[in-house]
Design a protein around this nucleic acid. Structure first.
Lengths: 254, 254
DNA sequence: CGCGAACTTGAATCTCCTCAAGATATGTGG
DNA sequence: CCACATATCTTGAGGAGATTCAAGTTCGCG
């Protein structure tokens, strides 16, 4: 519910950020665009803003645009008839939303925090995909990264204990935090949870009670500290990482 | 261990199938190739055969080729230090193996049955990917399909009961069987399991005992019948599908 | 200050896992 | 061709971890 307001003046007008000033200019699908391609995008892009909890699209509905997440967090989720829900994707700034070639999403798409999307109408974007191998290659690479992330998630859901799931999740958030601020996740990292307990449970394949209990347990043992229920302090990153069940340092140096 | 021998003469020589005769010609990454592109592939491709259980590559190792599965089944899996294993991908005929742009797989790759791969050396293939938007587009599409499949698997691992997991798995195999033989999966479908109980357990996030127990339970209740431990007969497809937890018919007509 | 939402904690239950034994295939050498 | 050895699969009993149901507690907002 609470999340970065960062970019873009408060209660604002049809906003239009020049691509050069865009915070995700070099990480999003447009990262490898040449000036000419960027001009094409610049002309057809438009922004949408959502509040935390707002539905962006339901499974099976038409989605007439694709988009990059500029700021905030979006979630993809699947729901069974009896109500069981599993989140199957977490879209952070620079991630791509939507599937070129299909005009309806098989998943529910929800804004998990205040969210700003940089949208492209489907047709023009698919045109660009055909005319510009550079963009197509970038999208393929991003999709392959997402596939790898989904596969890591399969291990988490299939084999990890509740405690390991929580530790893994916090570890990932801490890493991302560290990458953003260009520092190593070592002493006293602070992580703001972008999800409430229930959304975390949906993401981790747990119940919200189990999430709460495991977070409490980690706190009791001093692995983490809490400032309110949404802010986590990590005094010793390696201690937390060791609880995640992943091998050693998991990719980051140090 | 037992699996189709189908294509390619028995104890055979460095084999080379002309692309036009290839059983996966119109489903693999080369599906949309023009004659000229096909010629390029034809020249640089080569075949590799593996026996059931054989390791194709371990996590972190170099893989100097990418490939299409021609026949048989391959598995991608991740293993934790303490030995817990989760299969994160199941590659069936026409599926693509390997990641352009990365020369080492983050997963263990294993032949789950006798397996025939149509291999391309990495460099030439990446060249083709740059020079031929057609192939790049096809690969993007296949990757997006795999991502969707992985996301469906997240729901299975995160939220389904052991019984539902087994039913889901059998349902999927029955559908694939039906697609191959161009018929609807209705009465008396027969499915040969490409995986043993342990591999199924690794795929479904269960133990092999639980897999065995749930299969026995479905058999006792008449939802399925067994011919040996590897062959499953499905007298009423809808009854099985109803046990999977997925909504109604799950996409196929009828 | 008080209300509702979000979060925490407790107790009982249930599903799946672990450990252990037995049964059924599979294949090999005598 | 049979007997034995091995791998695979099945079944059982007991236990651990997560869920369910049910109160409490804290936090944020009007």
């Amino acid at each position: 519910m609470t999340q970065v307001k960062s970019i873009s003046p408060a209660g604002c007008h049809p906003l239009q950020i020049p691509c050069e000033d865009c915070p995700i200019r070099y990480r999003a699908v447009c990262a490898t665009c040449e000036p000419s391609e960027l001009t094409a995008l610049e002309g057809s892009k438009y922004y949408r803003r959502y509040e935390a909890g707002q539905v962006i699209g339901l499974a099976g509905e038409r989605m007439d645009f694709v988009a990059s997440v500029v700021s905030g967090v979006a979630g993809l989720s699947q729901t069974m008839e009896d109500g069981r829900t599993q989140m199957v994707g977490l879209l952070l700034p620079s991630d791509f939303l939507g599937r070129p070639g299909r005009d309806r999403s098989p998943y529910d798409v929800t804004a998990l925090s205040e969210l700003l999307l940089c949208c492209f109408r489907r047709r023009p974007f698919e045109g660009l995909l055909h005319s510009s191998p550079r963009v197509a290659a970038r999208l393929l690479d991003m999709t392959l990264d997402e596939l790898d992330a989904a596969r890591d998630w399969l291990l988490l859901l299939g084999r990890k204990s509740a405690r390991e799931k929580i530790a893994s999740f916090l570890t990932i958030l801490a890493r991302r935090e560290a990458v953003l601020r260009q520092s190593l996740p070592t002493g006293g990292t602070v992580v703001d949870l972008p999800l409430g307990r229930e959304a975390m449970a949906d993401y981790l394949g747990l119940t919200l009670e189990t999430v709460s209990r495991q977070i409490s347990a980690l706190r009791r043992e001093g692995v983490i500290a809490l400032e309110g229920s949404r802010r986590v302090v990590i005094p010793d990153f390696h201690r937390l990482a060791a609880e995640s069940g992943d091998d050693s340092d998991g990719g980051l140096p140090c």
